[in-house]
């Protein structure tokens, strides 16, 4: 079994869904999440608050420096993610296809490093 992160990205300037569109998406994602939980695939997941709420901390120089804003100026950022456990990439890609349809956005799949033996 391998753990994968399936992340959904928000692109700068793209309008967020509202009203009924938002509700439909939430409902679809709820159904998908429930399936993950029921089938023992779910590890963790959730949606993130907007990028404006991010704070960056840098303690590499000794005293931590706290800065308002994201780590890097980017045109896109993670809006939410799932961590799942799947037998292999093919299984993960099938789940990602369901996730993408549910949240109506592109989904990036990335494996976690294995835990050290």
């Amino acid at each position: 079994m391998t753990q994968y992160m399936m992340s959904v990205h928000t692109v700068e300037g793209e309008a967020m869904p509202t009203g009924d569109d938002m509700q439909r998406m939430y409902d679809q994602v709820d159904v998908f999440n429930q399936k993950l939980v029921n089938e023992g695939i779910w590890v963790f997941g959730g949606g993130l608050e907007p990028i404006e709420t991010a704070t960056t901390v840098d303690a590499t120089g000794g005293e931590p420096i706290i800065t308002d804003g994201p780590f890097a100026e980017a045109k896109e950022w993670i809006g939410g993610f799932w961590v799942i456990e799947a037998p292999d990439l093919d299984a993960a890609l099938k789940l990602a296809a369901e996730a993408s349809a549910a949240c109506e956005g592109k989904v990036e799949v990335r494996p976690f490093q294995p835990e050290p033996a």
């Binding site: 391998t2 037998p87 292999d88 990439l89 093919d90 990335r110 494996p111 490093q113």
Partner: peptide
């Protein structure tokens, strides 16, 4: 290796 691409023939469906 890292993404665990399986060493098998795809299912009939795929």
């Amino acid at each position: 290796a890292a993404a665990n691409i399986p060493y098998r023939v795809p299912d009939a469906e795929d």
